[in-house]
């Protein structure tokens, strides 16, 4: 199928893009186009104007500091995945990015675009939530930072106003010495996750969990923290029994109803299994970090 008519505007600067977005009703930002163009080909969306941000130099950079990674709006999934400094600051990004579609799609699709698209089964919004990250929204009237937990509202719905452009996203670095893990299940390689889970586990010197963070996607209408499972771990030793208890505690987090692919009961089993896997990964990663 073919996309409907639209006006095309290749923005030359951030101000140019913001001004155009402000004054054009029905306009949408075009980043990698890997979600927007299929939707237009299906005629599920018909924007009046596409504001292409790919030629704005400021958006083409990644900054890695000791406390985090700031990803510009047109950084491709694939560039982030292969970036050694990004990997050193937070290995969860590469682990998750390898599960986002296929290389030819990651070559064009942007990470910030994926965060904005907000598919409830998408990996990177979940990683943003898991790491406690945020996005920077800008409009003609100013700039604001939106933390991940406030950004995601519902399937394909975010706190971004229609005249706001997300100029960058910030993923905090992995806390020093923390263990981490990521696991996903999809029917075919590169599909959106039926469920995926990420974990960051920090412990004190005696091995007691001081901060367990768990998040999942594909199980509801937006990425979610698995707080009941986190509570089952905090203040305890991360042994087999605690991990099994945490996995069981994830059941209520699944709110997605039975769908054409699987039942809700199936997703609950899946989530518990994936949670056990990522916790085991996190514990062994932490041992390696200490050794």
């Amino acid at each position: 199928m073919k996309p409907p008519l639209f006006d095309y505007c290749s923005a030359q600067s951030v101000q140019d893009a913001l001004q155009k977005l402000h004054e054009t009703p029905g306009a949408l930002i075009l980043a990698g186009g890997q979600s927007l163009i299929p939707a237009m080909n299906f005629r599920l969306v018909s924007p009046s104007t596409l504001i292409d941000i790919n030629r704005i130099p400021e958006f083409r950079k990644v900054e890695v500091t000791s406390d985090g990674i700031v990803v510009g709006a047109t950084i491709r999934h694939r560039d982030l995945e292969l970036d050694a400094a990004v990997h050193a600051a937070n290995p969860l990004l590469r682990l998750a990015l390898a599960h986002v579609a296929h290389v030819p799609i990651r070559n064009r699709g942007t990470t910030v675009g994926s965060l904005c698209h907000a598919d409830a089964a998408a990996e990177m919004p979940m990683i943003l939530l898991l790491t406690g990250g945020s996005v920077m929204a800008q409009s003609v009237s100013g700039t604001r930072t939106i933390p991940a937990e406030e950004f995601y509202k519902f399937h394909m719905t975010t706190a971004k106003a229609s005249d706001e452009l997300i100029v960058s996203a910030r993923f905090p670095a992995l806390p020093r010495g923390a263990g981490y893990g990521f696991a996903e299940f999809a029917r075919r390689r590169g599909d959106y996750a039926l469920a995926a889970v990420g974990a960051i586990v920090s412990c004190d010197d005696s091995g007691i969990v001081t901060d367990a963070r768990l998040a999942a996607c594909g199980i509801g209408s937006k990425p979610v923290r698995l707080t009941a499972a986190e509570n089952a771990l905090n203040g305890r030793r991360a042994d087999k029994a605690a991990m099994a208890e945490a996995a069981l505690a994830t059941a209520d987090a699944v709110t997605a109803p039975d769908d054409t692919q699987v039942t809700q009961a199936y997703r609950r089993h899946l989530l518990a299994g994936l949670t056990r896997q990522v916790l085991a990964q996190a514990v062994s990663a932490r041992k390696e970090a200490i050794a």
Partner: peptide, 19 residues
């Protein structure tokens, strides 16, 4: 529809010619 755009494999069906 995979082609090389500036040396990288990409979907020609998910790219506008103007881009």
């Amino acid at each position: 529809c995979t082609v090389l755009i500036d040396g990288r494999a990409a979907r020609a069906c998910l790219t506008f010619a103007v881009q």
